[in-house]
């Protein structure tokens, strides 16, 4: 579904990604793990068009999407829930969801999608007319994911969904991510600091270190890897 070949990104003279290659199969959950500054967020930003790729190629659902404008990439069904959630804080929950469906023309489909989002996150329905900035961190994360789901994603990229969320809500969010994948068939690319949790729910994983992929494989196998355990899984 997604095919990344030799993708590189630089911020000015500083190289952030030094040519990474990986692919994601339709229907799977893939996680990208790595320390701060390893290039995880940069990878997602390059895929969604927020930063320009210096080199390499990104193919999504059979088409070359390298360096397309973000709105064109979203239109193809590659949606990015950014780090820090980036909900529109002064807009209501309702308006945030409407913006998520910005490119959708079919009103009936939009209504179905709303019901689908409320089915996953009933909390959002209760807070529909509240400014999004007044939601709790966990609710804002739900809104950010819900907003992305309004755009009919084929592949959903989630950047640190556990960041700044009450520990007991983190479980819930991860369960929802699995639900979105299993029940609704959305492929997921997950970037996560909490490597334990990420490996638990994902099928495959890639480990990034200073802009390069240093390890790749099935999540189950990687969880048992002593090297990885020492570096990312707290012994």
């Amino acid at each position: 579904m997604l095919e990344v070949t030799d993708l590189s990104v630089s911020y000015g003279a500083i190289s952030a990604l030094g040519g990474i290659s990986f692919s994601i199969e339709a229907g799977s959950i893939v996680t990208l793990i790595g320390a701060n500054g390893a290039g995880k967020t940069t990878t997602l930003r390059a895929l969604s068009g927020l930063v320009r790729a210096k080199g390499g190629r990104v193919t999504f659902a059979g088409a070359d999407i390298t360096n397309l404008a973000p709105h064109r990439i979203v239109a193809r069904g590659l949606c990015h829930v950014p780090e820090g959630r980036m909900i529109f804080s002064n807009l209501t929950v309702d308006e945030n969801l409407a913006m998520g469906a910005y490119l959708q023309k079919d009103q009936a489909r939009i209504a179905t999608n709303r019901d689908y989002v409320f089915g996953i996150f009933p909390r959002l329905q209760e807070r529909l007319l509240q400014p999004a900035g007044t939601l709790s961190g966990g609710e804002q994360q739900m809104l950010a994911i819900g907003r992305a789901l309004m755009g009919n994603p084929k592949l959903l990229m989630l950047d640190e969904p556990s960041l700044g969320i009450a520990p007991k809500l983190i479980r819930t969010i991860f369960e929802k991510i699995v639900e979105i994948n299993r029940r609704h068939g959305v492929t997921i690319l997950l970037v996560e600091q909490n490597a334990n949790l990420a490996l638990e729910i994902s099928h495959r994983a890639f480990v990034l270190e200073t802009g390069r992929i240093v390890m790749a494989g099935e999540s189950r196998t990687l969880r048992a890897n002593p090297e990885l355990k020492a570096a990312y899984l707290g012994g």
């Binding site: 973000p70 709105h71 909900i87 529109f88 807009l91 913006m99 907003r147 755009g151």
Partner: peptide, 19 residues
Amino acid sequence: TAMRALSLNPKAAALVGIN
């Protein structure tokens, strides 16, 4: 609404598909 969204957060606006 897209104008308000853009003024609140240009990156997020781009990511929901706003041109």
